[in-house]
């Protein structure tokens, strides 16, 4: 397999650079009430990593100072962080679009059951994990009982208006494959999810995003143990699509770790692959002009974002129709 950076250079992209920082993706910690088998961060209930108050305040200061239009809160389960609601309240007072990546089951946990109303009151856009419309693939990937709990959480969100037409409360679902294969085309799969979730469970949502499983973290361990790693990487490399390089999410996003360190994306964060030398490295010295056109630090995992229709936290990169 040709190293990703060399592949780009061969195609005339000697340095992949950012074009802006429109989204600050904040990872509030690696603790999670689930321990999904594909998790690139190996998040779980026993992980101690949590963003502290000082970094939270620095995030708020950076968003306000540099007028960053979108803030994307992720984890682990971001809601577990004790400063989560403080952060959402403060950010909602700014002119910022706020998005939370929610695993759904956290909304049924004690001390978190009020969150659907909290999200509604702060007009938070939700991107919720639901890798299939059947129990078996979901529970195998995300843990026993997760599918049933996810449906219950979705029903609660629907009752508040989330995902319903004309409510302006956006509820999107995130699909990822339950194993060592690539995601389907996003459009037809979204149609199926809409039909099946409505027919089987009377559940509504706005959009379905497809996300490829990154060959790092816990998913890489699975690939290696199951002797799928080489073939999976070969599939990603063979599926390299030069047409979506310019749309890669790292070109418009900065990721902040629970420690307040800056990364080109959440995957680089998982791999501890820092920003290029000479750039601001933490949220405390965030400098928008210095970061907007920075060179991006690449690795072979980047084949995961450029395969086939492309993959990102906002779904596939190849927009059709």
């Amino acid at each position: 397999m040709v190293p990703f950076a060399r592949k780009l250079a061969q195609l005339g992209f000697p340095d992949l650079t950012a074009e802006a920082v429109n989204t600050l993706q904040v990872n509030l910690g690696w603790r999670c009430n689930q321990a999904c088998r594909h998790c690139h961060l190996a998040a779980g209930p026993d992980r101690p990593e949590q963003m502290g108050q000082a970094a939270i305040d620095a995030v708020i200061d950076a968003v306000a100072r540099w007028s960053i239009p979108v803030v994307d809160l992720t984890g682990g389960s971001p809601e577990i962080n004790p400063h989560f609601e403080y952060l959402v309240q403060r950010l909602s007072q700014l002119d910022v679009h706020l998005l939370v990546r929610c695993n759904l089951t956290i909304l049924l946990e004690p001390d978190h059951e009020h969150l659907p109303e909290f999200f509604r009151d702060h007009r938070v856009e939700l991107v919720c994990s639901l890798p299939y419309f059947q129990k078996d693939p979901v529970d195998r990937l995300r843990g026993p009982g997760v599918f049933r709990k996810s449906l219950e959480a979705l029903r609660r969100l629907n009752r508040l208006g989330y995902g319903r037409e004309d409510s302006n409360l956006e509820l999107h679902l995130m699909y990822n494959p339950a194993g060592a294969y690539l995601p389907p085309d996003q459009g037809p799969l979204e149609d199926r999810f809409q039909q099946e979730l409505k027919k089987r469970y009377d559940i509504d949502f706005n959009r379905l995003y497809t996300l490829l499983n990154m060959p790092i973290g816990r998913f890489k361990e699975y690939l290696e143990k199951s002797s799928n790693y080489e073939r999976y990487m070969g599939k990603l490399a063979a599926g390299f699509n030069p047409d979506i390089v310019s749309a890669l999410m790292c070109r418009n996003l900065i990721s902040v770790s629970w420690e307040g360190r800056l990364f080109d994306c959440d995957f680089n964060q998982a791999l501890n692959l820092p920003l290029a030398a000479g750039l601001p490295q933490t949220i405390w010295d965030f400098d928008l002009p210095a970061l907007s056109h920075r060179p991006i630090n690449l690795g072979d995992h980047c084949y995961g974002c450029t395969a086939a229709a492309g993959s990102s936290c906002g779904g596939c990169l190849m927009k059709k129709g």
Binding site: Y132, Q134, D136, P137, P177, G179, Y181, L182, P183, P184, D185, P188, L189, R192
Partner: peptide, 12 residues
């Protein structure tokens, strides 16, 4: 089998 899964199919 791989193609069907990659196209969003399932065991049923």
């Amino acid at each position: 089998t791989r193609a069907a899964l990659s196209a969003g199919s399932n065991m049923e």
